[in-house]
Each structure stands twice: as C-alpha cells, then as structure tokens.
C-alpha cells in the first residue's frame, strides 16, 4: 500500500518563477490497484511520480510505502521498492551495453552489488524467456547493444527491466507518449499483460484519455497540483471521454489544456 499524505512541492520558491507543482496531495493506492493519471500541462502528474521515486525532496507531507516512511530516503535507496519507466525511451536503458547486461543491472535493483559476474548463466535463461514473452524477437539478440534497438523496443525492454524484479509499485510516466501510435499500442499491450500477470500496484500517467478509461481499475485527474477527480471500479469502467472532459471543466472551471492530449 502506497500512501501520499499532504504532499506539497513548490519549485523555485521565493523567485518570480515560483510554481506550486503539488498542492497538498493525499492519495492511497491499495495493493494491486492500477491507477491511470490524466491532467493538463503542468498539472503535477510527473512531479507526483518524481516525488514518489525521490528525484526531488518534498517540501511538506509524507510518503509511506507498506507502513515504511520513505519520505527521506534517497532516490537510489527507494529504487528497491519501485519499478520506473520514463517517457523518453533513451532514459530507461544504457545504450552502449548489451540487452542482457541491461537486464542483469535491473535484476539487481536495490540489492547490494558485489564482485560476482553481472550476468550469470541461470539468469540468461530467465532473460531469454522473459524477452521471448515480449514477442519482439529480442531473445535472439541478447548480446546486441541496446543502442541498436528502436524506441519501441527500448521501451518494451525498459518495462521488462522495471518489473524483472517485482516492484512494490510500478511508476509509468507517459511511457508511450514518445512512440508512434502503432508502437505505443504494442507497448501498452505489453504493459497490460505484465501488470495483469503479476497484479502489480501501478501508477500510470497518460495523455490518452481513452487508454486512461480502458486500463486499470481507478482513474485520477489532476489540475494545478491537486487531484480534482478520483473514480474507480464500475463507475470508472462506464466513463466516456466527453464525460471526462465535462468533469474536468466542472472541477477546474476551465478547459482542459494539454497539447498532447489525445481524445482517442
């Protein structure tokens, strides 16, 4: 269970560029929750994920994971609990290293690293199996440098890396936004399968309202650093895109402004 308690973050405090990115956010994710997050530009979606993963320190509030207060843990220390996939496919993988080396680095997420071999023989079998499940033919290219892969392949690999050691929470930050529609669909399909198979607690930021409704069991909408709409279960499943847009206008008193938003 992941709890955000009154988390607040202001960037550039005391300057003309002061921006309240998160305004007293409280949110509880039950185990197995698959939550999609939508919102306009600068709503605080990515900031919320970055706060959970410890990229920046919070100004106020607490982040509690399975009863442990992780508010003050550094980013690398928190990594043992979290699987992360970023928007930029380049950010999730090491281009000059082999596919299997990348997977091996990820398989030791949050563990003490020593002087044993980075890639072991037993692991190689596991990697081959998991890569084969992606259906991209990467299982026959385990010795290839990741830099040779396409953006979609890299993002699928990152997804596998984020989950090869089961995370307590999977954080997906618009991880299909930089891909072309066909590849995005493919990566999203892989996401659904991986999350479903392992019942991962997942927080997925997306700009695609259709996906936000279709995937997961809960949807939250953010605006100017606040959660303005939170819906789950049956009620969420019955949502339509026009309803969602209307909810946004009601709650925020303005039009949804997201230059990437797809109405799908």
């Amino acid at each position: 269970m992941l709890e955000l308690k009154h988390v607040t973050k202001t960037f550039n405090k005391g300057t003309v560029n002061e921006k309240v990115a998160l305004d007293d956010i409280s949110l509880t994710l039950e185990d197995g929750d698959f939550v999609t997050v939508i919102g306009g530009n600068g709503a605080g979606k990515s900031t919320m994920l970055n706060m959970i993963s410890g990229v920046y320190p919070v100004d106020r509030g607490q982040i509690v994971l399975d009863g442990n207060d992780i508010t003050h843990l550094s980013e690398p220390k928190r990594a043992r609990y979290l699987g992360r996939v970023f928007q930029d496919p380049m950010l999730g993988t090491a281009a000059d290293m082999q596919i299997e080396e990348n997977l091996a680095l990820a398989a030791r997420r949050g563990q003490r690293r020593g002087l044993s071999w980075n890639v072991t023989r037993e692991e190689r079998e596991l990697f081959r199996e998991r890569l084969a499940s992606l259906g991209l033919g990467l299982e026959d290219r385990m010795g290839d440098k990741v830099g040779l892969l396409s953006g979609g392949q890299r993002q699928a690999l990152t997804l596998l890396m984020a989950t090869i050691k089961q995370p307590d929470v999977l954080l997906l930050d618009e991880h299909t936004a930089a891909l072309d529609p066909k590849t995005a669909k493919l990566v999203l399909g892989i996401t659904e399968r991986i999350v479903g198979d392992a019942h991962l607690t997942t927080l997925m930021v997306t700009h695609n309202m259709h996906d936000a409704i279709r995937l997961g069991n809960r949807l939250i909408m953010m605006d100017t650093g606040r959660i303005i709409y939170d819906v789950r279960g049956e009620e969420k499943a019955r949502l339509t895109v026009p309803e969602l847009l209307q909810k946004f206008e009601e709650a925020s008193g303005g039009e949804l402004d997201n230059d990437r938003m797809l109405l799908g």
Partner: peptide, 28 residues
C-alpha cells in the same frame, strides 16, 4: 574482469545513463 562484475557494470552504466542507474538503486 572487474568491468564484467556487478559493480563494474554499474560503473559502466553510470557513464551511459545516470538516470537509469539511479532508478535501479545505484548511488552514482
């Protein structure tokens, strides 16, 4: 040998992509 070990691989990855390495729990 060293750069094939867990620590050595983490070191090589640091030069490649610090972002990723931190997300995988290594203090760069």
């Amino acid at each position: 040998w060293f750069f094939g070990t867990e620590i050595g691989a983490a070191l090589r990855a640091t030069g490649n992509n610090e972002h990723m390495v931190r997300a995988l729990g290594v203090d760069t």
